[in-house]
Design a binder for these strands. Structure first.
Lengths: 234, 234
DNA sequence: TAAATAGTGTCTATAAGACACTATTCT
DNA sequence: AGAATAGTGTCTTATAGACACTATTTA
């Protein structure tokens, strides 16, 4: 953007914007996926102060010429090598003192990774990126990331309930109905009745059968895929 | 992508947070109230460049030692003289170029003012603060405030639907059921059936009758108040 | 033929919507 | 007595939940 090259400081002085102290602004990403029938979140182990050795949510600084969404997408790709997945702003967190280094306001994002795309590329800055089940989370995440994660979990459940099409971002392109139900059960934290679930699915017009089926040591299950739809949301 | 030249590893090496450019961070407040049976929003007329003479959402810079919620509350009080009303974070907006002066990320808040507290104090920095019906909004608000307002409207309707107790923040302490229904109708943008509405209200356990009634040139209406409750939300 | 999972329907309870008249107060 | 608003109940439809057996494949 043009103002970046020259004029920023001058204008800032002239219009008094610069008399206010500026915070650093980061994006932090709560990336969820399903692994081994459990909801997992991506964490990185910090290599330096502060919170050295602690687990933290992946994230990084927002740069002047990008949108917030772009910043989140870029950080996510740097950490995981995955691009183009579902990514949505969650909330900002800016309590003073949340980062001992300096004044840092973070904008948290939620992302969902389909369960067949677990490949994690070694991040450029993340010493170690690991999936962690949300059930037995370490009590001490870095910064205020435990709070952010808890907020993300509540929001995830709320959003999945109010928009049934969200779930598609956690599943591979083709899947069995039993697998789909399983993902719902994991997110909602309770068992669902198979017949009621399938009856409800029909009324949602969310998935359609393919001709393919999945075979195992039992009766084969039909594979379904999501209907590519024009609209959902209220 | 220019920014790929700068890597996070540089930062990691020196803990040097300050070497990254910092944005200015503001809070902007979408303050709704009901006036003359219409949903109104508070706007201020800008007295200087940029967007001089345009209407804008009230707001201001976040200070280092305050939380984001505090910043929003403080700005709101500076503009309106009203403190302690319902205030909730909405979303962050940070597209590059949204403020022609410099890089400014804003965190938008939604606030609700009860319809008996319309007193607006002349703000310290707001040249002119005015209520404006959301129906016939001027097309050209300053910055990206039209987008923020539209987002706030969608969210307001969504939140009112999913949490019936929110409505209490738009009504005085005591009110008639007809008045309460009116507010719902304004927010939802459609007429409601009186008998169905009252039946639904009963099941919500949201309001309770007082012994007081309101008199006019017609049969008096009983006044109700909100039940002070322990919990709502999903 | 046993093990394993897929797939399928009815009945009941609750919630939401359509719909119209009587009651009370003031002027 | 007329104007104005308050207040009240039934029937219908849609949605959600409880509940158990048969079907098909592999080993």
């Amino acid at each position: 953007m043009v103002y970046n090259n020259i004029t920023m400081t001058d204008l800032a002085a002239e219009y008094d914007v610069s008399k206010y102290e500026r915070p650093s602004v980061t994006v932090d990403i709560v990336l969820f996926t399903i692994r081994e029938r459990r909801l997992n979140v991506l964490l990185v182990r910090r290599g330096q102060w502060p919170f050295e050795g602690h687990l933290a949510l992946p994230g990084g600084f927002v740069r002047p010429a990008e949108t917030l969404d772009e910043a989140a997408g870029r950080e996510l790709e740097e950490e995981t090598g995955v691009a183009g997945i579902f990514l949505e702003q969650l909330r900002s967190f800016g309590d003073p003192g949340r980062d001992p280094r300096t004044w840092v306001i973070t904008i948290a994002y939620t992302a969902l990774l389909p369960s067949d795309k677990h490949v994690l590329r070694a991040g450029t800055d993340a010493a170690e990126a690991i999936w962690h089940a949300v059930e037995d989370m370490p009590s001490e995440l870095a910064f205020d990331h435990t709070m952010i994660l808890n907020y993300a979990l509540l929001e995830l459940r709320r959003r999945v309930l109010s928009d049934s099409s969200l779930i598609k971002n956690l599943l591979p392109q083709r899947f069995t109905l039993t697998r789909l139900q399983e993902v719902y059960e994991i997110l909602l934290g309770r068992a669902l009745d198979k017949r009621n679930f399938r009856k409800w699915l029909q009324s949602e017009n969310l998935v359609q059968a393919t001709t393919e089926e999945e075979r195992g040591s039992h009766r084969p299950a039909r594979l379904y895929e999501f209907v590519l739809e024009s609209a959902s949301r209220l």
